[in-house]
Simulated assay, not measured.
Amino acid sequence: MSRFWLPALLVVALLSGAARAEVTLGLLANKGEGDVAADWQPIADDLAKTLGQPVKVVAVKDDAELARRFAAKEIQIARTNTGTALTLVEQGNGDIVARLALTGGVAEYRSLLLVRNDGPASLAALLRDKQRWTIAMGAPTSTAGYLIPAYHAFAKQNVLPESFFRSITTGNAEDGFRALAEQRVDVAVCNSDDLDKLRETYPRDFRNMRVLWQSPSFSYDPLVLNKALPAATRQKITRFFLGYGRSGAHSAQEKTRLYYADQLSGFLPSSNRQLREVTDLQLYFGLFKLNLAKQSDAERSASEKQLYRRYNQLVAVLGGPK
């Protein structure tokens, strides 16, 4: 008799465990990983109640690590920048379902160049002195921390950061801010969202800095769901975030949690099409670097075709031409 009952009990136990499998929310940290994870945990706890299963929060500074763990299905929900989101979507591992909105409903940001008050007077003055300055930027995969300033501030002035600056250090917005404050670099890349938070955290250091340059506005960070999630779970998670802090008996408490998590007002509907801004920038900056490369005409032509081939593939993945 037991030979027949034991497998059945095991099946029930396995199904029960699968139903309560842990969901992991992965965050790209713009400050200390522990602080970011703790700030988001109350929202994760509310999501766990909605899903009826545990939700763990992990925060990492390295976007490549977040992409790797997402691809390995260790992360099911990713709050990340648009550059990393493009990697997740391009690899076929995830889809954007929402984007973050800041306090006041602001859903856009600008990349910034910061200098100390005694630094160069303007971007033009900065660009007059090649190999004089040092800069703190994001990793090349970062949209706000690298790609936007690399193209809009430098490439448009026929400048490649890697050859212009005496040295480049990489890190997140807070890393660059601290490096500038401590006079370890002359210029730091930041963004309008993180600068508001850093101003509150380091008011004395901020008073010794100023914004040298700002970019056009871009859509704020997306929320990406792993395609490995069951469709019903994906729908629950999407409804949870789009409705969080909007209405209901607990909306006031939820709004407070949103603010302390990331100074957010909530989440707006979005899709993979949001990433068209990034694909266009990548193409333009890629073509600029190609013009500077030491290649034969045949090599340059092949490289250009490769850039456009990837661009057209991405446009198709992201919903086609506008």
Results as ranks from 00 to 15, higher is better:
Leu123Val: 12
Leu86Ser: 06
Phe218Pro: 08
Pro161Ile: 07
Ala249Met: 08
Leu198Tyr: 02
Met209Ser: 01
Leu127Asp: 15
Lys197Pro: 03
Gln183Glu: 10
Arg234Ala: 08
Leu10Trp: 13
Leu6Asp: 15
Asp196Gln: 13
Gln313Asn: 10
Leu126His: 11
Ala298Val: 08
Tyr284Gln: 08
Glu182Gly: 02
Gln235Thr: 10
Ile135Cys: 04
Ser296Lys: 08
Asp129Ser: 14
Ala44Ile: 06
Arg178Met: 08
Phe177Pro: 01
Arg3Thr: 13
Leu113Glu: 01
Lys322Glu: 12
Ser16Met: 11
Asp297Arg: 11
Leu100Ala: 12
Phe241Lys: 00
Glu299Ile: 03
Asn191Tyr: 12
Pro120Asn: 10
Asp186Tyr: 01
Ala8Trp: 00
Leu25Cys: 01
Gly320Asp: 09
Arg79Cys: 08
Val211Glu: 13
Trp133Ser: 01
Ala139Pro: 06
Gly17Arg: 12
Arg309Pro: 06
Gly286Pro: 00
Thr84Gly: 03
Asp35Leu: 14
Leu264Ser: 02
Leu307Lys: 04
Asp129Gln: 15
Val12Tyr: 13
Leu113Trp: 00
Thr24Gly: 03
Tyr244Gly: 09
Leu113His: 02
Gln295Asp: 11
Arg99Pro: 06
Pro54Asn: 05
Ser142Tyr: 04
Trp213Ala: 10
Ser215Cys: 06
Pro140Gln: 08
Val23Gln: 06
Arg234Ile: 02
Gln274Thr: 07
Gly17Phe: 15
